[in-house]
Design a protein around this nucleic acid. Sequence first.
DNA 1: CTGAAAGCGCTTACAG
DNA 2: CTGAAAGCGCTTACAG
Lengths: 337, 337
Amino acid sequence: MRSTTIKDVAERAGVSAATASRVLSGHSATSEDARLAVRTAAEELGFRPNAQARSLRKTSTQTIGLLLPDIRNPFFADLAHAVEQRAREFGYLTLFGNANESQEQQDSYVDVMLSQRVDGLIAAPQGEARDLSGLLAGEVPTVFVDRVVDGAEVPTVTADNAGGIADAVRHLAALGHTRIGYIAGPQATSTGRERLEAFRAAVVETGSDQDADLVYFGDFQSASGAAGARFLLDLAVPPAALLAADSLMSIGAVGVCNERMLSIGSDLAFVAYDDIEAFTLVNPALTVIAHDVHAMGRLAVDLLIAEIAGESPQSVVLPSRLIIRGSTPSLSEGNPV
Amino acid sequence: MRSTTIKDVAERAGVSAATASRVLSGHSATSEDARLAVRTAAEELGFRPNAQARSLRKTSTQTIGLLLPDIRNPFFADLAHAVEQRAREFGYLTLFGNANESQEQQDSYVDVMLSQRVDGLIAAPQGEARDLSGLLAGEVPTVFVDRVVDGAEVPTVTADNAGGIADAVRHLAALGHTRIGYIAGPQATSTGRERLEAFRAAVVETGSDQDADLVYFGDFQSASGAAGARFLLDLAVPPAALLAADSLMSIGAVGVCNERMLSIGSDLAFVAYDDIEAFTLVNPALTVIAHDVHAMGRLAVDLLIAEIAGESPQSVVLPSRLIIRGSTPSLSEGNPV
DNA sequence: CTGAAAGCGCTTACAG
DNA sequence: CTGAAAGCGCTTACAG
């Protein structure tokens, strides 16, 4: 079953393929007669132009690639949504790839997307610059979002990781906490590294306990958050405050607290990085380090569009905001250290 | 900056484009010499074949389309992940589209995906058969997943909606509940309709209260779950048990309970449709109607692959499983009607 | 305003 | 085993 081509349309309309093409792409001057004939013919035949053929001739495909580490992470799902909606406004279709927090899958998606000749690529990358040589050689306009890669000359849209973590630690310290357990992200990611560094600096700044055991290394997925909570709560001198470096690890960690009948807010202070809708499930509500994910997605697209247009857009860093809720009451309200 | 083509590679390797093509696609007989020369040339030039040109010649693009209603719904995020991983195993890239629970965006994605000449399409559709004429005319192999469209001759992978809801209502009735509030999904979706129908049947079967006010119509998104919970809890005679037809509405509804200091499990029984990771945030844990999303995604891909191969695969219905947890204790345990 | 022709980058019978 | 040639479906200078 060969699908109908522009030739079929042209034949039926009694014009040449060239004229049919002009009419269908709303191009230049075409006669009233031609327009009518071609449009009805296309309609009747159910003509659907072959995007492959079109983009072989033109140099653009009107698609952008979006490469994310984990679509099951609500933060990235929100980001994907924001990017896709914004891209639509510019007439771009978003091809989405899920690297599954795996270097290998990331590489293979970069490959495939470049083969598909996407007009641009938005990625939350992992690994190092040399792993992304294809992108960084300037083969295609690229924007990094949320995460970055050292030494890459690519515009980025990131959040103020350091500021958010510092605010959270200061907040806990002000509440009287001196032992703060930290569930860190993977150090292969820029966000994992920056947040940990900021945590360590803030611990020093506030005079909190620098015990190395207070840092557990997770992988941004929920099981590692659970493992981290278990590890920290089982320490000889367990921390009375926990800070987790992303939303999925927070979910895992809170789950462990629930299992153990530890009451968040009274038995344990808790701060989560990222503010996701599902956090309203927690009672009392979680104190979080929040970002404007929607703005992050929009801006990433805007920078990419500018790049595609040949401009050299400036990177932007979005502010973090500490939202204090019931999970971090002052110690006098009943938190036994 | 023209990207390197197979001609460039051929020239550098001192062979014809035809030979270069054969080597690069691991085709038929090629000489040892040719293979070596072409491979090194391709390597040196960083040659990346143009997928557009290739799929214009061949008839397949090695891509499938995945059209989902809402990527921010964890159920669909999990499904997307499962589909994508399975498709990868067969060498297919997944082009992902987010219809945003909008008919219009769904239509435009169907259009774009057909234009991109995806080899097959997996969709959780909404609306009616006539809205999807392109798909249903057999233009491209299609599988519906989770949701279906009446009168469409398309293989489907669905969950046993009716069985799950019936089990939940019976469970609540056995606990002594006679007034059960139901937050329904949109009636433009097959899942919304089937679940509501099953709810009504089970209410009759168990002799529960058939008051029409006990059904609130939501839209599968969290804000409507919150609105539904407020509506139901504000009734003159509010239900002491709530059942929500998906995970996002459950999140909204539980959030309202938290706001109102209603203790789930003691003040109110709660059952959620779908079991998502974030539900571990709730304490006590939620009773849920669970499915094997992973199997659903895998099967959808398997059916599609079969269809692409020219077979006529059978639709499959996956079982629902009621998982009873702390949010639905027996009334004697303290639920005041 | 319109058509004939060339060409985008690849693949594949067809000869040899 | 290999090359010349045709063709996938479109678009776009080039003439007219």
